[in-house]
Nucleic acid binder design. Structure first.
Lengths: 244, 244
DNA sequence: CGGCTGCTTGAATAGAGTCAATAAACGTGG
DNA sequence: CCACGTTTATTGACTCTATTCAAGCAGCCG
């Protein structure tokens, strides 16, 4: 049987019992493979399944009626995708693969059974939601109140940190895997202006770039430029009861 | 004993059992009264309690280090406040009263016990979270990709709709209860520009204003201008199991 | 009656968008 | 492995939206 990516994620937060791991395995019994730019679901599709992202990087976005796109969130292995399908009858977001991906689709009823049978897991899912909420509000504040340069820097930091969390080998550089257009859609800027901001960060010797690979030359200045808070750090879950 | 505002909120989603209502009452055993502009918690305070908003209107916001403020969310009776205190050791948001308010503080442990003992309630809390997530991403898209006018219109609609949800008497007009500065901090604009946008909406006969009271003169155009989706409508919870 | 705080409006400015043209990188099929 | 078409990145010139600065006004409260 496949090991559960979502269990690994939760396992970073607390120790899971074998029976909890087995229960979580239910979410990942099936698999679906996606190539770059394939969409997992489109906005306004009938809301059906939800997903665990097992491998790769994805994004969710919305289209506005003037044709512009806002990228809401980047997803990494272990994330739950399309969770709002739980409550709406049509999808609120488009979910697209940013590279080759593997997802595990599951049904509302499977999730519902899981949460009712394993209240501790329900609590952990709620915790993941709160982390995501904090990250979303950070991005909200960035879009509302920070400069173009800060927003671009924040995206770079976010992607780097999340990649680092999954692969601890921490090289000094990383491959962003986003076009400048995508960075623009995430930051609320145009691709042209993203280009200028990247160049500016480069000229100020805060980052360097070559062939899509980015290196942070000055982390402190980078963090200051970006105003960035890592929401996957600084957690306090000591109050959660141990396994029953 | 006090009736539970949060139970009323959940009761709009599904039918609650008497024992569930009693369990929910635990969250609202204490009360605290706040006047306009009083803060319930400040960013970076030690994260302690969480709250049910029982009465009044509040907002949560963050301060950036250049001194500017971003309002993240408006809260109405029945909302849970400061839920991220569940997982972080210091508060991520400042929470402020927009008028006279009553909140009920409760402890992490009370929530934790509730969710473990009543998995169906845990699921409902997760559902509330998803609604909030959808609303947050709508605002994210608005800040990233819509015009100043659209953002102002969206805030007006959001406030009106949420007030209407609590008080079904639906008069043709409502009192916004926000300064233009606050609207600006919510929409990522300056107070000056908010003023111009309000005036423009007025000149186009989409709204009218007098003494803080706002009337929508042309709902369809308003909705079109705002690009607004009501996330408290269109829910589909049929799959939730009935009371055990 | 002052002294706030919030609203209104104008003029000048700046930051980001638009348009356009070129160059580089990538992918695909021959 | 190369040629070709497409996507992505880069750069400049110009425009426009929203900000900044400034000043005057209105309403409210002690």
């Amino acid at each position: 049987m496949l090991q559960s990516c979502f269990a690994d994620r939760l396992g970073d937060l607390v120790e899971l019992t074998p029976s909890e791991r087995i229960a979580l395995g239910r979410l990942e019994e099936r698999e679906r493979v996606l190539r770059r730019n394939m969409t997992l679901q489109r906005e306004n599709d009938r809301a059906g399944e939800m997903f665990v992202l097992r491998k790769g990087k994805m994004m969710s976005s919305v289209l506005l009626d003037d044709g512009s796109r806002q990228i809401l969130r980047f997803h990494f292995a272990g994330d739950l995708l399309a969770m709002t399908n739980m409550i709406y009858s049509s999808a609120t977001e488009t979910i697209t693969a940013l590279g080759d991906c593997v997802v595990a689709p599951f049904d509302r009823s499977v999730l519902s059974d899981l949460m009712l049978a394993q209240p501790r897991i329900a609590t952990l899912i709620l915790i993941c939601n709160q982390i995501e909420r904090a990250a979303l509000t950070d991005r909200l504040a960035a879009l509302g109140r920070t400069s173009a340069k800060a927003r671009v820097a924040a995206i770079l930091l976010e992607i780097r940190n999340r990649m680092q969390l999954l692969d601890r080998s921490t090289p000094g550089s990383f491959i962003l895997g986003l076009t400048q257009e995508e960075i623009g859609d995430a930051t609320g800027l145009t691709a042209v202006h993203v280009n200028r901001m990247l160049r500016q960060l480069e000229e100020e010797k805060i980052i360097s770039r070559e062939a899509g690979r980015i290196r942070f030359l000055d982390e402190p200045r980078m963090a200051r430029a970006a105003n960035y808070v890592d929401r996957y750090a600084g957690l306090n879950l000591g109050w959660l009861p141990g396994h029953p």
